[in-house]
């Protein structure tokens, strides 16, 4: 089985400051992997590098067999959902936010029905009432679930999650756990939350931009 994400001796510098140094790891389909480390150790930079938001200074990044280049970055972004700590919904109402990707040429012909929107919302423990609410009036936890719903509506199977459970209430957290219990979904995450770590297959430890270890939860 070939890896879905592969970093091969990757180094990244932003404004002449090295933020990732000689990172190598692979992530296989269906795996749930978490990046751990102190603040500034480069965890979020790994996620951002994979989707082309940071330029690779040395080494190679692969999605399946495809190398990350200017030509392939759109395919990689289209296959990946990236959800940060404070997701941006980018639209006035929740319904508009959910339908936003379907305004773009890449997804214009895949606009989901209302029934499909509600089905995905229910999967995330949200009700149909939220559709007409203003994006600015919903809670942080709801925003993260809406961002996640967009990924599900687009049929994405690879998720990059940056501290998404840190500010969630118990109900939102359970909804997120339920979604990612699906073995079809592959997850590369950044987290400190123990409940999340328990559910991950592997923990990659980062320190000052270097990968310093790998373990499973409870196996220090």
């Amino acid at each position: 089985m070939s890896p879905i994400i592969r970093f091969d001796q990757v180094s990244v510098a932003v404004r002449e400051k090295v933020i990732l140094s000689n990172i190598s790891f692979a992530l296989f389909p269906g795996e749930k992997v978490v990046l751990c480390g102190k603040s500034g150790s480069g965890k979020s930079s790994v996620l951002r590098t994979f989707i082309g938001l940071h330029a690779v200074a040395a080494g190679d990044v692969y999605f399946q067999q495809m190398q990350l280049t200017a030509a392939s970055v759109h395919s990689i972004r289209n296959a990946t959902a990236y959800i940060g700590q404070e997701p941006v919904l980018g639209a006035e109402t929740v319904r508009e936010a959910l339908l936003l990707p379907f305004q773009f040429k890449a997804h214009r012909n895949q606009r989901p029905s209302d029934a499909r929107l509600i089905e995905v919302l229910n999967r995330l423990h949200l009700t149909a009432d939220i559709l007409n609410q203003k994006s600015s009036h919903i809670s942080g936890g709801e925003k993260q679930r809406i961002a996640l719903a967009r990924g599900l509506l687009l049929g994405k199977s690879l998720y990059l999650l940056d501290e998404i459970t840190s500010a969630l209430d118990a109900e939102s957290k359970q909804a997120v756990f339920d979604v990612f219990s699906d073995s079809q979904l592959t997850v590369l995450s950044v987290a400190h939350d123990k409940e999340w770590l328990v559910r991950c297959d592997r923990i990659l430890e980062l320190e000052a931009g270097r990968l310093v270890g790998e373990r499973t939860h409870g196996n220090a």
Binding site: H74, R77, N78, T80, Y82, P101, R150, L154
Partner: peptide, 18 residues
């Protein structure tokens, strides 16, 4: 100022122009 929003649009399938 809206770097995150712009990146979100790209991740949702938008081209640079979109």
């Amino acid at each position: 100022k809206n770097e995150n929003e712009y990146a979100t649009f790209l991740m949702l399938g938008a081209t640079r122009i979109e």
